[in-house]
Design a binder for these strands. Sequence first.
DNA 1: TAAAGTAGTTTATATTATAAACCAAACGCA
DNA 2: TGCGTTTGGTTTATAATATAAACTACTTTA
Lengths: 96, 96
Amino acid sequence: MPEFKDLDPLLHSQLRLAIMSLLIGVESAEFVFIKEQTGATAGNLSVQIDKLSQAGYISVEKSFRGKKPLTTCKITSKGLKAFEDYVRNLQHYIGK
Amino acid sequence: MPEFKDLDPLLHSQLRLAIMSLLIGVESAEFVFIKEQTGATAGNLSVQIDKLSQAGYISVEKSFRGKKPLTTCKITSKGLKAFEDYVRNLQHYIGK
DNA sequence: TAAAGTAGTTTATATTATAAACCAAACGCA
DNA sequence: TGCGTTTGGTTTATAATATAAACTACTTTA
């Protein structure tokens, strides 16, 4: 019984998935760190962080470190649940 | 070490992934069967089968059953390898 | 004070996915 | 025998996405 459940389109995106994947392992992560880890361009990252934030999957805090802007991201419980659902559904596609 | 390898964009698509997933388990599958299993519209399925075929991930045979056209799909070894790579890379994203 | 760097955001474009419209043949049946 | 319906698709138009390029604002360095 294959049964291909829909994959949350918000998570079925390489970059957004990587962002979520990163955030799952940590308390919070900074924009620049995420940028480095994912290899994304700043522009793309900015857009995708915004989408995840709009969806309530992550929370974003803008502050300053010294004089420079600092964007910090954190996964929300809604985001965590969405990620877990996504992974569960995905298993049906990739066997196992 | 996260290390987010690129996910083959040809496979990182819900419908194409479902098609490949289906084909992995069987010798071959007919258009109508794939359509039923995936819930895709015929048009969308036609397009996506074409893309997978163009990429050499599946082979497509057009024949007739009785008087009706019959499209049969089969995964190729190239497709199998691509799928396996995709799954392996994906694991980095979804933990495990 | 001018050039270069940091940390982003905005916007324009290219790519994708998807549905809607279409086509040809076959079938059902009055 | 014609006329509508179904089957098995393909083609094409549109909507959604991803991405890079251009830009902004401020800071640091020389």
